[in-house]
Write a protein that binds this DNA or RNA. Structure first.
Lengths: 351, 351
DNA sequence: TTTGCATATGATAGCGCTAACATCAAGGAA
DNA sequence: TTCCTTGATGTTAGCGCTATCATATGCAAA
């Protein structure tokens, strides 16, 4: 006689299965309706009459019911999750993008699932495979340099895909970003116009986007007939402020009459500035410095540092908006969005 | 006669339901075993004989089978997910912690699900509720200042909970971090010993951890009979490098003979340094500067900046290790771990 | 031999939810 | 009236996996 108690009413005692938490069936019973009606009321209240809606809301509150996202995903073969793949979390650039994504998402039902590829195409492929196995509502991936296999996976995925950070004409689906090549070119041309003639390039990590900035730098110098391979100093080491000084020292050892450096990113530029201060190299008189991304610190440094402002937050925001538009069936003005960049000229290149 | 074709063999044509991807049943059929055997072979190969294991592996490869995490979570009422709640993603401190968590996780089956509380206890409560509804394998939350309701939720959760970043004696379950109060005290005592007498506190955001650092600062100054409320300059605005200079200006307007500042964090310290350079205030002679966290840039700044090194990566690593130990049933040496901190004395306080 | 116990595999029945279809009432057009 | 919509609700049958219990086999102990 002790076996026939209803498991649900006994909490977790009767069975090892089940979560012990109220289910949609509990809500339905309490509200005196069918489970599917509760499901509908929760997903789209307009499908259910006002009276039932009120009763269901009461029951939900009373039981403290929360839908099980796993059951929901299984039954509808669609998880309320947007997968986001970034190459790094400690890089403030991607942190800004992720913030933009969160901001674009607002209070909706969609959640973010983040993956860190550590700049590895193989890891990216593994993560894409894993993410797709969860049947996400959409996928946002960084860059356009996926492996062949990754690209095939993305192309055959039946959800919106947004590639971010770059500009190009052959996205898997949608693309939001700007041209790193043009960014590098504009920065370098600015240094040329400022009167610099021996303009070095300092780069760390040298991921595909860094490579494109370097290509832009090179194109600008070649057009001005100022290019010299010795001007380029790079490392595969991840970027750090402290690396900037080391790379500047390396660059000066190769090219003693260096009069400017275009840095791959702002961390390196800051490190270069500190090294100049330490070595007594006047900025910008003897050495002009230009960074990339325009982090907050650039405008307060002494002297303030020129940089290329990139629309990081905006990229996150727009990518989510495009996903939401697509999921809602709204038309997308264009599946390729170039958000551009803006050169911020400051003391470090004014001479 | 066209209705009785097996839906699975027709791809997605026959029904709108189902993912169209191979299921465990497909693998089982191909390998000539029962589905449950495939399930076992995948979760714990030691449960299945070598021959069957080989056949199953072949079938998995041949079909490109990947288990559906949602179905798995539903059936086992346990998702292979660790929820991680941080107050910010753009703050490098938490980025380092998250990196530590990823590193601690390695190649295991567990995934990270991240939540951003934006320093809001209410948002934290919402996220805890949401995360728990997914029945995560564990939860890692930042800080010890949860709301009453959040704490109750966490206490009644049937998974390991790790609070990180702080030290204390009353964790919900496990705790990994260090004492911000002691950090503030040690930094301030160092400035006192360096001969400073009018030591300001500069702080932004002023979240609970900042408050505790401030309390440590105050305790040190009071013990030395050097405390003066005018020495404290804070704002609720989120911290940025550019804020450091503004706050220093504010502080100097109140206390003209300020001879040192202890900054809430390194961003502010860097901003203070730049402002000193710009205003011609000699560091450390006229103004000593001490930061908090010891980011990479501190050691290369000119002059290099004293800071309190915090074990951010280690906190992430250890918190995951504790979770993994607990999930594996291994004993936890202690559920409260104080990883300490280390004052890094540099040029900015050497006088 | 019998018993007991561990090991390997299978059958069954869900986990909590929603897609697909069925039902039913109310109203309007023919 | 009859037929057909339309909208609101219900019934049924899964989604893909695993907990649980049942079964079969082998082998050591009694």
């Amino acid at each position: 006689m002790t076996d026939d108690i209803a498991p649900r009413e006994q909490g977790r005692r009767a069975s090892r299965r089940g979560s012990g938490r109220p289910t949609i069936a509990d809500v339905a019973k309490l509200a005196g309706v069918a489970a599917i009606t509760v499901s509908r009321a929760l997903r789209d209240p307009s499908l259910v009459s006002a009276e039932l809606r009120a009763e269901i809301d009461t029951a939900v509150l009373q039981l403290g019911y929360a839908p099980d996202p796993n059951a929901r995903a299984l039954a509808s073969s669609r998880a309320d999750v947007i997968g986001v793949l970034v190459p790094s979390l400690t890089n403030i650039v991607f942190a800004d993008i992720v913030r933009g994504i969160y901001d674009g998402l607002g209070d909706g039902p969609l959640q973010i699932q983040m993956g860190n590829t550590h700049y590895s195409p193989r890891e990216e492929e593994r993560l894409v495979r894993m993410f797709l196995s969860q049947r996400p509502s959409a996928l946002i991936v960084s860059g356009i340099d996926q492996t062949e296999a990754t690209r095939k996976l993305l192309e055959s995925a039946d959800c919106p895909i947004v590639q971010i950070m770059e500009h190009g004409d052959d996205p898997v689906d949608m693309l939001v970003g700007f041209s790193h090549f043009e960014g590098g070119k504009v920065a370098t041309n600015h240094l040329i116009q400022a009167g610099c003639r021996r303009i070095g390039f300092i780069g760390a990590r040298m991921d595909p986007r860094s490579q494109r900035r370097l290509a832009g730098y090179r194109a600008a110098l070649e057009a001005a007939q100022l290019f010299d391979p010795k001007l380029i100093t790079t490392t595969l080491t991840p970027s750090r402020v402290s690396l900037g000084g080391q790379l500047l020292a390396d660059a000066l050892a190769k090219v003693a009459d260096l009069d400017a450096v275009f840095c791959n990113n702002d961390d390196l530029a800051m490190g270069v500035l500190f090294e100049c201060q330490r070595a007594g190299i006047a900025v910008p008189q003897r050495m002009a410095i230009c960074g990339f991304n325009d982090l907050d610190m650039m405008c307060v440094a002494y002297p303030s540092l020129t940089s290329v402002r990139t629309p990081r937050h905006e990229i996150g925001l727009r990518s989510v908006q495009m996903v939401l538009d697509r999921l809602a069936g709204r038309p997308i003005p264009s599946s390729i969005v170039d958000l551009g960049f803006e050169l911020q000229v400051r003391e470090s290149t004014m001479r």
